[in-house]
Nucleic acid binder design. Structure first.
Length: 154
DNA sequence: GCCAACGTTGGC
DNA sequence: GCCAACGTTGGC
């Protein structure tokens, strides 16, 4: 099993929103970056766990965890002309972009903030903390995942 | 809201 | 195939 981190702007789609979805499950659409797409396609398996990260807010933070419940399949918003994720180079016959389905797993009683993560020497190499690292889907090592989970006080 | 860092596009 | 211009991300 592999581990991941999924970024989302909470005003666009938050962990709360995921909790309120039917079956607490939603497709992770709108990924328009090849590296992120390839990680979904080649790496993500049903049962994998991922952190849910809120970006572009006053205090960016990991707010909980989700599980992958469906492996990569075509992102239908890419050929939906009314979607802001529309891509004229993608079609139902020849989809360029993919998505996975994720299900809510847990919400931390206290978010683990980016600031907090930066203060942990063992996480120095973590993708999220590297300069200029903007990938919205990132691999997380098992050690990093367990260490961060151990910080959660519930 | 600013702007540095990054990815993509497209002219040549 | 280079690289300038442009658009986007995301911390601050």
């Amino acid at each position: 099993m592999r581990h991941w981190l999924l970024k989302s702007e909470p005003n666009v789609f938050s962990l709360e929103d995921l909790k309120n979805c039917p079956n607490q499950t939603e497709h992770w659409d709108g990924i328009r970056n090849y590296q992120a797409r390839n990680l979904m396609r080649d790496g993500m398996k049903v049962g994998d766990r991922a952190f849910f990260y809120h970006s572009r807010q006053a205090e960016p933070a990991i707010v909980g965890t989700v599980r992958v419940v469906r492996e990569a399949y075509p992102d239908h918003t890419s050929w939906d002309t009314t979607s802001k994720y529309f891509d004229e180079n993608s079609s139902e016959e020849n989809p360029r972009w993919l998505m996975v389905d994720v299900q809510f797993e847990s919400e931390f009683s206290l978010p683990i903030t980016l600031k907090e993560l930066r203060n942990i020497p063992e996480l120095k190499e973590m993708f999220l903390l590297r300069k200029g690292m903007r990938l919205s889907i990132q691999p997380v090592t098992e050690e990093e995942f367990e260490l961060i989970l151990s910080l959660v006080k519930d």
